[in-house]
Design a protein around this nucleic acid. Structure first.
Lengths: 197, 197
DNA sequence: GTCTATACGCAGATAGAC
DNA sequence: GTCTATCTGCGTATAGAC
């Protein structure tokens, strides 16, 4: 819980603007307006745009990292892992529609920075890959492929949402929500089917 | 073929910078440097940054649109359509690694603008959906789901490339190329498997 | 066509009153 | 803590010489 109300208003406004427009697209003035305060106050609380962005970005992407570790839970079968992972991953994204594109932009803008954050958030791809491999008995490359497929399938409908919603659902927001809701169930089936051959 | 060499050098430079950094991230000075010419010359040839960007963006994304119409070719079976589409789509992306994120950023930055361009490039989702539906006998929602899956699976490895290459291939560029090459074959199988149940 | 020099505006950041 | 006013630098764009 943040110290006071102003700080929280700034964080909320910054979250909205940064996730919608990215680091380069968002303006400090816009953030101040959105928060209903003055530009100078932003700097009083967070010193610089970089620092404010850093704060928002870490808070946002950190929500996703723990979900990856669902794939490590040895008490579950592969089926259960995938179902639970997809479900929880999509739930986070439903509450943060702009997160995927936000992260993708950062992947491009400053990859080195992101690797460090991933590590310090407790992500280790080798552990996950090893774990999956002992449970599945497939070549490593196929496991990598599978992970990329799973994540891509979760992420893409959000990253491309404005376009997909227009093309496939005539910009009907509710229809798109239904579509995502349905997808939480159908996607694990889609993925698991591919593994049965 | 452009009128002269300078114009071509500018277009090449602009293409590189815009696709790597997006409209907001790219700087006119950088583009001029990359082209080995002066900033003023950019404006002499293209008047404004907006106009230059417009030119590059249309040229880039137009390469992808025609590929979507592969799905309309009634001389092919569904299997063949999907195989050919995935293959050709990925080939374009291999020659334009930054295209996916470039387009995703534009989806966010100015969606309205993009819809118009899609239409004028000859894209009509309803025609494609209708065509697929008569061939497949599935509910419309499932067809939409399928299309989103196919495109997402093609696009994601490129949109997230810098991160995926680091996490799964230790930044070995060649390994990542091999992975994409292999994927051109395995992806259609992955998708078609899901449809056989 | 291509350059140098410069105008102009905007965005991030600071100074200082309250 | 919060404001107004202001500085500084950068990025786009233009003027004008060659």
């Amino acid at each position: 819980m943040p110290k006071n109300l102003t700080e929280q208003k700034i964080l909320d406004a910054a979250h909205k603007l940064f996730t919608h427009k990215g680091m380069n697209g968002a303006r400090m003035q816009e953030i101040a307006d959105e928060a209903g305060i003055n530009k100078a106050l932003l700097h009083y609380y967070f010193r610089s745009k970089d620092k404010l962005f850093e704060r928002i970005f870490i808070e946002s992407f950190s929500q996703l990292v723990p979900k990856l570790n669902i794939l490590l839970d040895n008490k579950k079968t592969l089926d259960e892992k995938i179902k639970m992972f997809v479900n929880e991953y999509i739930i986070v994204l439903q509450h943060n529609s702009f997160l995927p594109l936000f992260i993708l932009q950062e992947i491009q803008r400053d990859p080195e920075n992101l690797y460090e954050k991933l590590s310090s958030a407790g992500f280790d791809s080798k552990v996950i890959l090893n774990n999956l491999q002992t449970g599945m008995d497939l070549p490593v490359l196929q496991i990598k492929n599978l992970m990329i497929n799973i994540i891509g399938l979760c992420v893409f409908p959000f990253a491309a949402k404005p376009l997909l919603n227009h093309v496939f659902f005539d910009n009907d927001e509710e229809a798109y929500c239904d579509f995502l809701e349905e997808r939480k169930k159908s996607l694990p089936e889609f993925i698991l089917n591919c593994l049965k051959y």
